[in-house]
Design a protein around this nucleic acid. Structure first.
Lengths: 226, 226
DNA sequence: CAGGAATGTGACGAATACGTGACATCCCCT
DNA sequence: AGGGGATGTCACGTATTCGTCACATTCCTG
């Protein structure tokens, strides 16, 4: 199964060159030359990776990147940004945009392939998800100990943060109060299980709209949903 | 830690000139004047980058480049090719050879350094951070053991300086007291002590306004923020 | 629809973690 | 030896955070 890469650039020659090299290297390639087309194809084809030029007519790369991050179907698709200016790099890789890597133009085919392999080759989604989790507008950065909603930080206490990450790291799976006590509190049940409920409440309060990710499963426990 | 560059050229004068310039610029340089020697040194020294002339007796630059790419220890080492003919460029940069960049002779030292920086300067965020860190008005020069605020020096003790750099080198990431004890004090013991806190206080006092970079994350540890 | 169980909510005392000042010890320098 | 700075430890005060309980609400079951 070939991996699909979507190439977005407004210069047909540039697209062609990249396309040729990527196909040589065994990837399936689709292309777009403007922002609207890019978004459409990204949604329809769910590529394994997107190569995105910053300079585009109308909707620029930053806009597209942001939009892609907000939509669940593409929120976790790795994005490799092509940019001309070193000054943009911080912004590209930062929390606001959250691209996975960047390349400054001009670049050699070899450089390009190295970057792509670096991202695709190692099953990044999982790798990265241990450090930084993203679900639509909700971002959780474990080592930084920061959670944010639409780029705005959410202040959480240590316990709340751990509870959130414990749930998020096993997205979709219901976790009983007991198992949460074990994982978050590291107790063997010296603690009232209602404590979990209380902390879930506090967590929900602080998360605000993002609390929609926190599901109560009656009679069983809690679960994080996308 | 200086970055090592291997210079390969069969003309001793050319080698000397390049070597001089690179050393001036702060790189560690080793040289080779023929293909066999080049391969040997590349394997043995694992340089951070190889400067490779195409015109060489016996084994030419193309051969060497190919060979280097095939061997795992050198497959990812950036290669900058020096070539006389524009017609060779495509081949040099193409997938077959996979050099990272090229320079046509003759070139000025300035051009050379620019190319090298472009290639080496890329993944270097971490590398660089070991030498000099800058966050707004706060500057930390690790090898010189100097910190300053708005150009004015801040006198720090050895421990305070190490604590600061340890935090700053992992900007954004929260570090627990335990991990700080390990990294700064090189303790293994997990004794519950307020030592870290005390030093944080002293550090904050001395940093004055710059102390805003030092964040306490309750229940977790400390963190350096920009 | 009623009743019970499970969960959400609000409040409060207890526990905890952190900042701070003080102090003893160590080490280097004169 | 003496002095001064650096370092590690301790005790204490305070603000935050935690765990628990009582009560309200919701949901399921019969």
């Amino acid at each position: 199964m070939k991996q699909k890469i979507l190439v977005v650039d407004d210069e047909p020659e540039a697209v062609e060159l990249v396309e040729f090299n990527l196909k040589q290297a065994g990837y399936a390639v689709s292309t777009a030359t403007d922002g609207v087309e890019a978004l459409k194809k990204a949604r329809a084809q769910t590529p394994d990776m997107i190569l995105l030029d910053v300079m585009l007519p109308e909707m620029d790369g930053f806009e597209i990147c942001k939009t892609l991050r907000l939509e669940t179907s593409t929120a976790r698709t790795p994005i490799l940004m092509l940019t001309a200016k070193a000054s943009e790099i911080d912004r590209v890789l930062g929390l606001e945009l959250g691209a996975d890597d960047y390349l400054t133009k001009p670049f050699s085919p070899r450089e390009l392939l190295l970057r792509i392999k670096k991202i695709l080759g190692r099953g990044v989604v999982e790798e990265k998800s241990r450090d930084q989790l993203r679900y639509g507008d909700l971002m959780i950065d474990v080592p930084r100990h920061v959670a944010s909603w639409k780029g705005k930080g959410i202040e959480l206490t240590a316990t709340e943060f751990k509870l959130l990450t414990t749930l998020a790291q096993r997205t979709g799976r219901v976790q009983s109060r007991d198992s949460l006590l074990r994982d978050v509190w590291e107790y063997d049940s010296l603690i009232d299980t209602r404590t979990v409920d209380t902390h879930m409440r506090r967590l929900r309060e602080k998360l605000g709209p993002a609390a929609k990710h926190l599901d109560t499963v009656r009679g069983v426990g809690y679960r994080f949903v996308e």
